[in-house]
Write a protein that binds this DNA or RNA. Structure first.
Lengths: 212, 212
DNA sequence: GTCTATACTGAGATAGAC
DNA sequence: GTCTATCTCAGTATAGAC
């Protein structure tokens, strides 16, 4: 078949979103895709590179949208720093839209964060976007030192990561459920909007006194 | 040897803190500990249960200290809700102290979070503590709905998790470095205090309007 | 260039002798 | 309690058919 590669990408995306990366063996993927084991290494080189391509296929459009919105907002503001809420909005609205259209996308991202694969695989796809947003936030929050802003961005990444893979459960289920839920769109949107509110408060907190 | 079990615990803790859980094979652990492979399964049952015991040994004292401080603060306040900053302080100060005394502890915790082992293994050790703190925060923030508070707690967990395993790097290194650093004590304390400031702002943000 | 068959290495787990 | 031997399954590598 000509589309062996695409079949592998699609099957891998589905199975990894359902079961996680570590729990999904190449042999399971190839059996569902109906191709040979060696085809994976022919087309992708390794299991990790297969994942890399799956992520690339899904994440790049979200990041493009983020940068487009941020550029537009900054142009409209013509030099004056954007409010934090607008920068965060440019970052999260494309994610809400992507997640609403395709819950599997959210699940896959959640898996990546949950399994700690962000640093090694996803970072390179997201890094330029994060750097761009970091610069925008630096202008919005001039009273923060670079170090302070750096860490607040780390906190944002962590909060977002965890929220993506957290159980969509009632308060009595705090930290109980480990299964990743199918986020129904309104739930997902609600959670991300709560996150934006939370982050807005966090970013605008007065700077932390330094310790030496 | 009588202390085969303890040697396994100590060696596992060290190697997992250095290399991560997935990257540390049982065969590596037993070779450094000088015991037989089957001893692991005899004493612990599985690799996962070995990790479980390593965590238990290290985390329980921190959680005990957290609950002790929170109890004391609430007793002193005699019924009036505690300020958010004090609740957060009760939660994070014991972690700062543990991390300052033993950087390896922080590194191990960071590994757990980074590899997404929190939900399946660590949650059961931390759950009672989190529930207790959730109740305290509910009293401190009566204007938040249960759902809102639930999610803000999730955001806190995520931010804390990520901060524990984030690179201790200059701002130009955002998301670049994947190696876990040895937190030098003042760095670690600084980061956690920045986190507390950030969370204080986030928790006290006005509630997010619900969407339906 | 594309894909198949098969072998290799290392992982965690287990049964049973001592 | 401990150890040897073995099992199954993972990801990877290669030789060669088409």
């Amino acid at each position: 078949m000509i589309d062996t590669k695409q079949k592998l990408l699609d099957t891998a995306e589905r199975l990894i979103a359902e079961q996680g990366y570590a729990a999904t063996s190449l042999r399971h993927i190839i059996s569902e895709a109906g191709v040979n084991l060696a085809a994976v290494h022919y087309h992708f080189g390794s299991k990790e590179d297969l994942l890399d391509q799956v992520i690339l296929q899904k994440a790049s459009s979200v990041n493009t949208a983020r940068l487009t919105i941020l550029d537009r907002l900054e142009k409209e503001a013509s030099g004056t720093p954007l409010p934090v809420s607008e920068v965060l909005s440019a970052f999260f609205e494309p994610m809400i839209e992507a997640g609403t259209r395709s819950p599997q996308f959210v699940k896959l991202m959640g898996r990546m964060f949950a399994e700690g694969l962000l640093p090694t695989i996803v970072a390179k796809h997201f890094r330029p976007t994060f750097v761009r947003f970091a610069e925008a936030l630096q202008r919005s929050l001039p009273f923060l030192s670079e170090a302070e802003l750096f860490w607040r961005l780390q906190f944002m990444i962590g909060a977002m990561s965890h929220a993506l893979c957290a159980p969509r459960a009632a308060p009595e289920g705090v930290l109980t459920d480990t299964a990743l839920p199918d986020f129904r769109p309104p739930d997902f949107e609600n959670i991300v909007r709560r996150l934006m509110t939370f982050l807005c408060g966090g970013f605008q907190a007065p700077p932390c006194p330094e310790i030496h």
